[in-house]
Design a protein around this nucleic acid. Structure first.
Lengths: 387, 387
DNA sequence: GGTTGTTAGTGCGACTTCCGGACTAATCGG
DNA sequence: CCGATTAGTCCGGAAGTCGCACTAACAACC
């Protein structure tokens, strides 16, 4: 009895090819599977038979009677929605958002709560764990159906230690958020930062669908970028790529939480913009109110957002010159503000090489404040699928 | 008779595994090949047999009698150096350098000639074709032994049209250098720009061996970067990634050949540095002389080079923040100037995030002015190997 | 309604590939 | 000179794939 046969590996490869194709393109007939994989109908039939008895695929009713005109209608075979669910957890600076999704990535339940995430790391993780358990209970899903959790943290993670870099979030020093949450929920937990997961979400579900090289920039209480190259997230040698917020744009600017002075983030992130606008208004401003004002065409708001966009766009122009991306997707709470995006576009056109500027789309993200939690779900699904 | 069987592909895969292992680790016994690939000795024997009759591998004499102590001595099998040669062509702004290498990448013959490449594109290509033919003749190698040519051009190439972007090199408007040289030599010609090929050379033979994420910056008459991510050159959506020289560092600086003002390139590339230094010296300065002065510890030279390094380093710090690379390799004619590299290191430490700065090595390239032509050779070999 | 044409899915025999075990080859130590 | 050890080869069996032939299910057309 051959043990680790290469032939078995071949069979396995072909099985994977079939399931991958079904995952990528949805239900399909055996004949189509054969054509697209290059395998013979016989082989596909045999593979599908195995997958069928193993319960990995199901035969849906014969879709449409035929394709071209005549002929026997195919029996469509579809990927069986795997049992179990995954959770996405988005730890923002001031909120905890949790989503429950089936393994096809369709979000079934979602919930947001306010929390002081920055200050009390372990408290926030307690809340997140409670929220996941609560959502499971509310949905009537047994706890052991939970297969994996993806988590979004508002700070860069070291690739090796998976810890948050000391210093940037005081309440998180030397904490590994993934390990902590894993301890609380007893399932695999995978963590990444907000910009990376926002990029992942826009790449799989949003404005960057189908793109290969994309820069996602998140503009909210901080400023960060998620960089997608060749269709995959670029995390860098130690996992801290994308720190676009700490480009220094003035020698003697405000002191930043990173320790430097004059970081871009101190000049364009939400707190600074509110600070700039507040004196001109009687009412207390919030990010939501600013977005309303911008939508109504308020001149001061437009000016401030546009200026911020230009500053960000200048940094993105340099990055675009280096990376030559297809698209820049603007996310975060301010990502939908038109003057901001217009400002970025203008600065990219002004400062990037003409050919580079011409090649790059600049668009708002399509997923809004749900981007991070959807990215966390995608992360969890990706890791479950990878085994 | 089965035609395009998956089994044949499996066989092929295993064949490749064997040759790849031999390429990576040198001569080896069949038994070792089996252990390292996970295939059985029987299968390896059969594969080696095929490769032997096909001439892709050779049996070297039995290396050392045995390994541990006793036992039959193995027959070492080694990759046969494939027949044929490849050429690398480096078109610089003022020179044409040509190298001939065997298919293992060992350069056998090399030659440099002065030429006004910028002004007369087709003339330079004529010269390059002549040089390749001349080298072949001098080495007594038949013309049809030439399998492919890699070419380095001193300007970005559009990925689709493979043409040089109009404007930056006046004598090259709408010319596809690869097509032109292919016409002259009647072999496949692959072209890329100088920074990309320098990066490729340092990656395969030089200071960046074994690295995954590297930024190679070329400092000579211009300023450009070759970006390696995940061990592969990143060319961007339209193939013009790496344009680090046209980061704008001053609103009202000199007018640049790209049409903007204040590009980094106008402030740190060789012509500007010579211009800055010349007034302080009686002799006419050249890049070579400046390197001598720097090596001798001349204060003014060190200052100018160090300042240039700081300017470049500042731009690289921003890029490093975004990409989090393992290494920055400084190449080009000025890449070996110690004050320049020190200046870059200082600016990276100053302007990049501390963790990013700590993760990145900043080193001179090891290949000097031969980097581009070696990269061109690597490009040619890579394309021949890929079929 | 029957016939023809087209496409889908499934057995069957043949071919390819791989593996394990048996066998031969070559060398070392005693 | 003989066991011990490792390398390489030969052979039979198992796994996997393919082409071909055959049945199944439909449409279109007479």
């Amino acid at each position: 009895m051959p043990s680790s046969s290469s032939l078995e590996r071949l069979r396995d490869t072909n099985r994977r090819a079939v399931t991958a194709l079904l995952a990528a393109e949805g239900p399909m007939s055996r004949a189509d599977l054969g054509r697209r994989t290059g395998l013979s109908r016989t082989t596909v039939s045999s593979l599908v038979g195995e997958l069928l008895t193993a319960g990995h695929v199901v035969e849906t009713d014969r879709g449409r009677p035929h394709k071209g005109g005549s002929g026997r209608p195919p029996l469509l075979v579809a990927l069986a929605t795997p049992a179990g669910v995954v959770a996405g957890v988005d730890l923002g600076h001031r909120h905890v958002r949790v989503a429950l999704a089936d393994r096809a990535g369709v979000v079934q339940h979602e919930q947001t709560a306010a929390a002081d995430v920055d200050e009390h790391g372990t408290d926030a993780l307690d809340r997140a764990a409670d929220a996941v358990r609560g959502l499971l209970a509310a949905a009537g899903i047994d706890r052991d159906q939970l297969q994996a959790v993806g988590m979004c943290v508002p700070a860069p993670l070291d690739r090796r230690s998976s810890r948050i870099r000391a210093g940037i979030l005081p309440g998180w020093r030397d904490v590994s958020p993934a390990d902590e949450l894993r301890r609380r929920l007893d399932v695999p937990v995978h963590a990444d930062n907000d910009a990376n997961l926002g990029a992942l979400a826009e790449l799989t579900h949003g404005a960057a669908r189908g793109c290969g090289d994309v820069v996602y920039v998140k503009v909210s209480s901080g400023l960060g970028a998620g960089i997608v190259l060749g269709g995959r997230l670029h995390r860098g040698a130690t996992g801290i790529a994308g720190e676009i917020g700490h480009v220094q744009v003035g020698e003697d600017g405000q002191v930043c939480r990173c320790g430097n002075r004059g970081c871009l983030e101190t000049m364009v992130a939400a707190p600074r913009l509110l600070e700039l606008l507040q004196p001109a208004y009687d009412e207390p401003l919030s990010v939501e109110r600013v977005l309303e004002l911008a939508a109504d065409g308020d001149a001061a708001t437009a000016r401030v957002l546009s200026d911020a966009g230009r500053s960000i766009g200048r940094a993105l122009a340099d990055l675009a010159n280096s990376l030559n991306p297809e698209a820049i997707v603007v996310g975060g709470s301010l990502g939908t503000a038109a003057p901001l995006v217009t400002g970025i576009r203008a600065a990219v056109d002004r400062y990037a090489q003409p050919d580079t500027a011409a090649a790059v789309r600049v668009v708002s993200g399509e997923l809004g404040e749900r981007a991070e939690v959807l990215g966390a779900v995608s992360l969890a699904i990706g890791r479950v699928a990878a085994g």
